[in-house]
Amino acid sequence: MAVIKLENVYFGYEKDKDVLSDINYEFDEGKIYAIVGRSGAGKTTLLSLLSGLASPTRGNIYFQDEDISKVNKYDYRSKMVGVVFQNFNLINNLTAAENIALSMDIAGSKEPSTAKKEKAYRLLESVNIPREESDRRVLKLSGGQQQRVAIARALSHDPQVILADEPTGNLDEQTQEEILQILKRLAEDGKCVIVVTHSPEVAKRADEIYRL
């Protein structure tokens, strides 16, 4: 069963000028999907639709067969999907661990703060951020480390779907490889990983490719 399904989706920032038209995609659990296309083709827009930051002008998006237009957008973003933004979009004055704990708080976690912090450390360790780095403000981390923190944050509320926008952009080859390994492992763990990318290397690692 598809975790996310797009049915005749249209979207345009201006009236009568669609960026996306008649999109019909299905995304299953346990797979990595790559969405590729030229610049301006609407890749990031598609990811915005999937993450609930934007709504289609026509058509429907279903999450586990439920039309997400009928779901509270904030709940959808905080609980159902995990998003790794192109620019990481971390809160700069918080530490790596605090960024993740905050994400859990927003998702409505009732765990005590010590338990949340411990979980944050574990998640960061799972993306190769050691504890001593976890308590540093994210601004002081490298680009690769920030990307890993962003991935860890996307996983903080254990969503079924991970959406990643250019997750390897601006990263060196070794870090790129590490990030791809993490995404692969997530897919192996049963998550649906949707990656928007320019990179043919990343696309090659995907189970399915959608071209815009």
Binding site: S51, L53, Y74, D75, Y76, R77, S78, K79, V83, F85, N89, L90, I91, N92, L102, S103, I106, A107, R153
Partner: peptide, 11 residues
């Protein structure tokens, strides 16, 4: 920061 918090699902 406000945009990020909202994108993360904070009302």
């Amino acid at each position: 920061e406000i945009g990020v918090l909202m994108a993360m699902g904070m009302k």
